[in-house]
Write a protein that binds this DNA or RNA. Structure first.
Lengths: 116, 116
DNA sequence: CTCTCATATCGATGGACATCAATGAACCAA
DNA sequence: TTGGTTCATTGATGTCCATCGATATGAGAG
């Protein structure tokens, strides 16, 4: 089996019980950790930043390779991780793949860090 | 070179330029990624949760080993990572080490995920 | 000083992951 | 079909890291 652990654990659980107020179950903990793990790589953080600041709040993958200084396969890999973590949405338009931030998911993540 | 990368890169930079609004420099990106990396481990997330929900908003290390199901050295390691990432503060009281959440740091992290 | 308890550090190990070059797959144009 | 373009997948490699047992450090207590 291919065990894409990020996708398997991050999405099913709604995420995000507040870390600072309520007791976390082990499932909630794993889900939250997976979401933060997606944000823990500088290249992915830069990709999210580039997409969020692009015109219309969306960007084509073709415009994301050069600014990161990484190879195309590496960028493709990181975009997949961000999508599977629910932080970006992906839409295919002909040959091109367009990405946009998933604001609901980001809101939920932010709430998890909100004090009681 | 000993490269304690978390401590070396996370703290000097103030952290946290909003990911969703302003362009990130490579230093800001690295600092933010380091902070999220500290939150990307289930055991550390649970430790933060336990401390934040403890009486008086602080907890003794001696009470954090059993609930995590990890060995004492492992818990000690994770607490160190959280302190070096600025997410927990550490205070020595006699033989015991007490930890509390660093709310300012958590606020800053939350702001980094706030939309424009 | 000696003993005990709380915590930190060391060294080793297994697994996860970021990265790349090469290749594949899907799409479009001519 | 042929070829070019965009993106994903594969396979290999080096590095990072979570985890543990063993051990060191350090702070009361007696």
């Amino acid at each position: 089996m291919t065990t894409d652990t990020l996708a398997a654990t991050a999405l099913p659980v709604l995420c995000c019980t507040p870390v600072l107020t309520e007791r976390l179950t082990s499932e909630e903990t794993a889900s939250l950790a997976a979401a933060f793990a997606a944000l823990s790589d500088p290249t992915r953080l830069l990709l999210l930043n580039l997409v969020a600041n692009a015109d219309g709040g969306q960007a084509c993958a073709c415009d994301l390779v050069e600014p990161t200084g990484r190879s195309q396969p590496t960028v493709s890999h990181h975009l997949k991780v961000l999508v599977e973590a629910g932080l970006l949405t992906r839409e295919q338009r002909g040959k091109w793949a367009w990405f946009a931030p998933n604001t609901e998911r980001l809101d939920a993540l932010r709430q998890a860090l909100t004090p009681g």
